[in-house]
Amino acid sequence: MTVTISANVDPLLSQESELRRLRDAVNQRLSQLLPVGSERDRISEAMREGTLAPGKRIRPLLLMLAAGDLGCDRNHPGLLDLACAVEMTHAASLMLDDIPCMDDAALRRGRPTIHRQFGQDVAILAAVALLSNAFGVVAGAAGLSDTCRTQAVAELSAAVGLQGLVQGQFRDLREGNAARSAEAIADTNELKTSVLFNATLQMAALAANASPAVKSKLNCFARELGQAFQLLDDLADGHSGTGKDTNKDEGKSTLVALLGAEAVRQRLREHLHSADQHFSWACQQGLATRQFMQTWFSQQLATFS
């Protein structure tokens, strides 16, 4: 199945080359920002394993591409640090999601989960340390104004906190096995996924000194994008080769269970179309972000058709 977004897509070779360059820059900077402990320092080792394990790096790439589309230099060192802070936050959330009292997952990114490798105590402490490190990286990001750094910290804090990832995980744990309406499921999905996308894009907007109107449209873009990502994750649940446990959603009240896979695919297409419209309003000149999302979703959905 092909996802259609209204941007005119240039040949993908140059885009793939740029994405590889940005991904390599993120991986290299992450390695520099994460602590290197002794052989006995299991927490540092777990932090590095959980963050540096091969991943898609969707959020840091999105931050840098969106900032570039909004007029910021993608090679700005502060921008790279903001991107790395988002990836650390995402990695910490995955480590906590996977522990036995949460989702009790065995695999993540094709490897044993952090608590399976290091123990649940180390996984929790490593996740907390990662979050602390992420806020420190944002607070010290080079070349950004004090106001920009302060606002970026606030955005990331809101995404993690009681009205963000924490609340989304709590609702999923407490309500996920009970009957829910489509609206209730979507509300939880927004907290689980959209809020960190929004922080990612708001930080890009701060770095690019974007207007309040642009930030508002980016918030709408993030909400639609987060819903699409969560629906994609639900569709992937029964498939092998994702690097994660299969059929973890069995018995849960997901939109796939409620509406069926084909209806969810249609919803996903609608979310992507709406997301594209919001981003095209926020950034009429740049195409890199829209091309990136179109290509990525098309490739992922092709494996689940």
Score class of each variant (00 low, 15 high):
Val137His: 08
Ala129Thr: 06
Thr147Ser: 15
Met102Ser: 10
Glu18Leu: 03
Gln169Tyr: 05
Leu33Tyr: 04
Asp98Gln: 12
Asn198Gly: 07
Asn27His: 07
Leu173Met: 14
Thr113Pro: 06
Arg290Val: 01
Ala159Val: 08
Ala159Cys: 10
Ile99Pro: 12
Met88Val: 10
Ala222Glu: 08
Leu232Val: 06
Leu13His: 01
Leu107Met: 12
Leu19Cys: 10
Gln163Phe: 05
Leu225Pro: 13
Gly68Asn: 07
Asn198Lys: 13
Leu52Trp: 01
Leu13Gly: 13
Val153Asn: 12
Cys283Val: 02
Arg108Tyr: 01
Gln277Phe: 03
His115Arg: 05
Arg108Ala: 03
Gly168Leu: 02
Val153Ser: 12
Gly164Tyr: 00
Pro35Arg: 05
Phe118Gln: 07
Thr89Asp: 01
Ser31Thr: 13
Phe279Glu: 08
Gly78Tyr: 00
Ser93Met: 04
Ala139Lys: 07
Thr188Cys: 13
Met1Ile: 06
Leu12Gly: 15
Val160Trp: 03
Ala204Leu: 07
Ser298Leu: 06
Met64Val: 11
Gly168Trp: 00
Ala67Pro: 14
Asp98Met: 04
Gly176Ser: 10
Leu13Pro: 07
Ser17Glu: 13
Asp73Gln: 10
Thr113Phe: 00
Asp249Tyr: 00
Ala182Leu: 03
Glu175Gln: 14
Met293Gly: 03
Arg109Phe: 01
Cys72Lys: 12
Ala210Pro: 11
Leu34Phe: 08
Leu196Lys: 08
Val26Cys: 04
Asp172Trp: 01
Ala186Leu: 10
Asn198Ser: 11
Gly168Glu: 02
Leu259Ser: 10
Leu232Asp: 08
Ser253Pro: 07
Phe197His: 07
Val153Arg: 04
Ser132Thr: 09
Ser157Val: 15
Arg290Ser: 10
Ala134Glu: 05
Glu183His: 10
Leu131Pro: 05
Gly161Asp: 06
Met293Pro: 07
Val256Pro: 12
His239Leu: 10
Asp233Leu: 00
Asn177Met: 13
Glu250Thr: 14
Leu235Gly: 07
Ala139Gln: 10
Gln167Val: 04
Asn133His: 11
Ala204Met: 06
Phe170His: 11
Lys217Arg: 15
Gly143Ser: 11
Val256Gln: 06
Arg149Tyr: 06
Gly243Val: 06
Ala152Lys: 05
Thr242Gly: 11
Lys248Phe: 11
Gln277Gly: 15
Ala158Pro: 03
Ser145Arg: 09
Ser253Trp: 02
Met95Trp: 02
Asp103Thr: 06
